[in-house]
Nucleic acid binder design. Structure first.
Lengths: 117, 117
DNA sequence: CCCATTGTACGACGCTCTTCGTAATTACAG
DNA sequence: CTGTAATTACGAAGAGCGTCGTACAATGGG
């Protein structure tokens, strides 16, 4: 691959291709759940560099890809940065209320365990 | 271990020990999601032998253990059988509405994909 | 043009997971 | 007591996952 792609486009699953098992698996990792929680609070697209995770950049990139390929988030380039946002509409259409409950459950658990951020 | 345990008791996590990540991971496996779905429909405790999964008994036992150790189900012996039931009260207390949404999402997806049962 | 910033690709390591087969355990029926 | 049915325990094979380090690609400012 000589990298002739000037499009800078990222492959996303269509709404029909999103699978519940994939979404649940994507959300079952602590780092990814943390990313999704921050993203949900932001209500706006955030760059990868916005997130300060206790892992390297390589690992962060990996987690963002898992989230994108499972259909949880959407990614788009903007200059040298890459903006990330939750695919709330698609997720709510496929799995009504699921993401909201997961986020709520995560917040409750963080509060319960005192391990928030 | 000479198996001196006559108690026939199974180790379950207490409500406080249940973790969201563990529950999501347990539910992210197709076989386990299938088990949970059947269990939710039944509204009563079911024996392992009730479930007809496309895997061997060993694997089935493994999945039941994952579900139990993550806090999703409760298991108790009754004679030579072992009854399984969802821990709805605990799960709803920790993660309100989560299980219901997951089950609803699974039903919707099965309907959408035509892969129900 | 050069360089700093941002993120990716690739390979690697160790760990976990799903699955299986076989041997063992428990409870009940005859 | 002997046998059968239900389930577990143990070990193993194979795949997948999370993490890292290093080298690379793309964008935008001096």
């Amino acid at each position: 691959m000589t990298t002739a792609t000037s499009t800078r486009e990222l492959a996303h699953p269509t709404r029909d291709e999103i699978r519940l098992e994939g979404v649940l698996h994507a959300l079952s990792d602590p780092m990814r759940l943390l990313i999704v929680r921050e993203m949900a609070v932001a209500e706006a697209d955030l760059a990868c560099s916005y997130f300060t995770l206790p892992v390297t950049k390589s690992t962060t990139t990996h987690h963002f890809r898992v989230l994108r390929e499972s259909g949880v988030i959407r990614q788009a380039y903007r200059g040298t940065a890459k903006l990330n946002g939750l695919r709330r509409e698609d997720l709510d259409a496929l799995f009504p209320g699921l993401i909201e409950r997961v986020l709520e459950a995560a917040a409750l658990e963080a509060d319960r365990l005192g391990t928030d951020d």
